[in-house]
Design a protein around this nucleic acid. Structure first.
Lengths: 352, 352
DNA sequence: TTGTATGCGTTATCAT
DNA sequence: ATGATAACGCATACAA
């Protein structure tokens, strides 16, 4: 037999939810007592009453209305996550960690994708505020985040992921870019590559991009035998990327040469470009990429990467945020993980 | 000069938001009138009053509190999305479309990841209900979704993505699996492959998996010269996958042979297994995969895929849901897109 | 230990 | 055309 529609009406209309009043009536107590029970004020309830309330709640399948709760207490138990690109595997992986950590502590997650659009970001922040989110986890590029700064200035906890938010002294969770980029660069040099090309998306004041580049150059400065170039461009512009890569290949001598892709997107586009240019992956040209992607082992002889603990970054960011929400007023913290080098075929030079 | 903290207190505590009362006072009208303005009841307001309200709202930067609104009106303008695996690129791509469509119509998105755990799904559904979400978009595997069925029976609109939810006559958005799988199978045969292996995750009553397999077998039945096998297993169990693939390779004769990977996860794991088995991609063995992934063109000679319009699926699912939310009571609809064959090197047999 | 009464910010009902 | 007032479901100060 099918579950009957308790509405009477045939499966239509927003269901009439059970309220605390009905629980109180059913249990034969006042709604205050039920509220106390829900709030965990166990000490202030007689054993008998507690049983009755428990029974009533189970019997009616009562679930507190978070809207009402949030309205009254000012706590929505809602966390907002704002990402610039929901399709970016890095963002997704972090989101995974965030979701798990939030759920474990009873917070729900509202997701916003700004698609790199500042106006959209404004609207999303407004929407999140209208739902009284208690905190924000942010992974965006935008520079013009007045609204974000305002929100933070008004006391809304914010945790930045991967990069700092300029003008905002917020908690940050990411990796040690200098360490990671140094390790990568040193690996290339140790493998015998002598011509290096650092390829990045436009710097745009985005911290990790700048720091990774700086580390690349710092290491290079210690190895006079190596020649390095750095390029920051919109890697989605295939023609220009092909041009840039082609120039590098043409300009570099017979010695081993390699590309350092500054993040996952660059790794992807660089690999595509290398194929378009007719390179045999990776005999012609070495490649090391930031961010471990699921397909890196499958391309050519495998792409060497610097892996980030994205899941942990997400978990930590969420935990950090929830501590703030729950009153932690200490100075902003940075949590930096280490990048881990995963060596594959793309950094094994082949005699040409 | 920095924006002053309007709290007075130094950037701490949940910010005191502007309420409709303050707007009313500032505009010199009653809050009823402000509410009318917000509700779009333009006809019932004098031009003068309207100006005042507009001014006050702008001046105070007032944003209606959705919690209070939801509590009173019973409409939260919240949509829940429940996915089995937040890391699955298919889910993410659909989510992208969902997010865009929701935002465009003023709905916010709450995201839940069940990680394939039924108990977790229960809890997530409970949480979503407690926030009075107005509808659900679901992409899970689970069979024991009593709670989901209950919610739907109680009138909560639900849209299924990719697959039907057994026992629930809900709207569904996905692709025409028979068409898509037929096209793929016929392509393999047309390319000259004679030994075919259909590789899937466990069927588990999941519609697309069953339908794709059925189409594979149907096409095969029309080609007596071809030999087909089908295997459904947990592709993450590498040892067993290697074994199964190895058996296929050992058993098939000198004629061209190919693997049909039933979804993106299987494509990934199959490619990994082929590499582990020492195959040169894809000279030994052809491969066609469901789901177009960003890296498919990069592996070996490129993996031929059947692409799904995942973004559109997400948009359509969300639109469909919002229509239901806004009162559409017509019979459940299925929206099926066509799979698009993208031919690459992995289905170009090489003379062995 | 328990209950009553008030208010959170909003919309809806009823007057005017 | 406009406004006072009562809910929405819950938590809490206060009273008993």
């Amino acid at each position: 037999m099918k579950a009957a529609d308790s509405n009477g009406a045939s499966g239509a209309g927003p269901q009439r939810r059970v309220t605390i009043n009905e629980v109180a009536r059913c249990a034969g107590v006042s709604k205050t007592s039920v509220s106390r029970y829900l709030g965990g004020e166990l000490s202030a309830l007689s054993e008998d009453m507690r049983r009755q309330i428990e029974r009533a709640i189970a019997e009616l399948d009562y679930r507190p209305n978070q809207m009402a709760r949030g309205l009254k207490r000012g706590r929505s138990r809602l966390v907002g996550m704002v990402v610039a690109d929901i399709l970016n595997p890095y963002s997704v992986a972090v989101m995974h960690g965030v979701e798990v950590a939030c759920r474990q502590r009873g917070y729900a997650l509202m997701l916003c994708n700004t698609a790199g659009d500042d106006e959209l970001e404004r609207r999303h922040l407004a929407a999140l505020a209208s739902y009284s989110v208690e905190g924000l986890i942010v992974h965006t590029t935008s520079q013009h985040t007045r609204d974000l700064l305002d929100a933070a200035a008004h006391g809304l906890p914010v945790v930045a992921v991967d990069r700092e938010i300029s003008g905002l002294a917020a908690d940050m969770v990411g990796i040690d870019n200098r360490q990671a980029a140094s390790v990568a660069t040193e690996h290339l040099i140790a493998q015998g590559y002598r011509d290096l090309l650092y390829l990045s998306e436009p710097l745009d004041h985005v911290n990790p991009r700048i720091e990774r580049l700086a580390a690349f150059e710092a290491v290079l400065a210690q190895h006079p035998a190596c020649r390095g170039r750095a390029l920051a461009l919109d890697v989605h512009a295939s023609a220009r990327l092909d041009q840039a890569l082609g120039d590098f290949l043409a300009a570099t001598g017979p010695g081993p040469r390699a590309v350092f892709a500054a993040n996952g997107v660059v790794t992807l586009e660089t690999t595509r470009a290398l194929r378009r240019l007719g390179c045999r992956l990776f005999e012609d040209t070495g490649l090391i990429g930031f961010d471990e992607l699921e397909w890196c082992a499958l391309v050519g002889s495998g792409i060497t990467t610097v892996a980030q603990p994205t899941y942990d970054i997400g978990v930590t960011a969420a935990q950090c945020l929830m501590r703030r929400i729950e009153g932690d007023r200490s100075a902003p913290r940075q949590t930096l993980y280490r990048g881990e080098l995963i060596v594959r075929g793309s950094t094994q030079p082949v005699a040409r």
